[in-house]
Amino acid sequence: MRMLALHLAVLAGVAALQFVLPAYHHTNAARILVLATYAIGFNIAFGYTGLLSLGHALFFAGGMYATGLLVDQGGWQPWAALLAGPAAGGVLAAGVGLLALRTAGPAFMIVTLMFAQAFHLAILYWGRFTGGDEGFTLSGAARRLGPFDLADPATRYGAAFLLFAAAMLGCLALVRSRTGRVLIAVRENEERTRMLGYDPFRAKLLALVLSGLLSGAAGATYGLMFGYVGGSFAAIQYSILPLIWVLLGGAGTVLGPLLGTALLFYLIDWASSVTTASQFVVGAVLILLVLFAPRGLLGLLRERGLRSLP
């Protein structure tokens, strides 16, 4: 109960933030919420189920392109196209999962990486439709969900918040459910889980599909919110980023993804304002952080007392 209250308080805080933040940080917060949703999706596979994928950009960009192409070239209504995003993420994850989950550990990392790389190359290759590396912009009409215009800052924040809140509460419900405990059991000891009568393959596939679904939803929302769909979101960098966010915040924690995403975002923002050698500062801080909290910030908190943190 106390934990539920904590998470609701965080959500309330995030919701209230929009009224006090100046314009620049207001937009940043909206970005962070959507990217944190992506991180939550990644965390379900990686943090809770132990599936270290290096190919999540496939699901994020897959959702972004599904929505973007349908609304831009398919003539779909924006809300319908928006729903196609998570669907695409989920379907792609199911497809990848059916093949990739035959492997584990480093082989799983490579297989997921390869599928994502193939997708990235395909986006460049079929540039006539996808715009290749340049991508394409979405018109104002493509970004209006009924009466809600995603180009409007307050609406955009609201949409980002709703997406994030749904993802976070969904994640919280999942990890406290029986299914969630099976996922964690698979992470801890797959053989034992099998002997207890569960099917680890099914559990892992479920985790990956949920993960892909959230990633696709985040990608689709991001595209509509900022009016741009581009190949760089399918590049390997966008598979590595959620890993960094989740590890910084604390893998296998519900709030870790938000914390990690916000932390890295503002770390880069701050570093580039104090020095032109900003990557140096970012690198050094990452190393210091990991020396100080090898299991992420919330992982540290969990070790230092807050054991019940989900």
Partner: peptide, 9 residues
């Protein structure tokens, strides 16, 4: 790609 992504903003 930078221009096209930033122009809508």
């Amino acid at each position: 790609h930078v221009v096209i992504a930033a122009a809508p903003r």
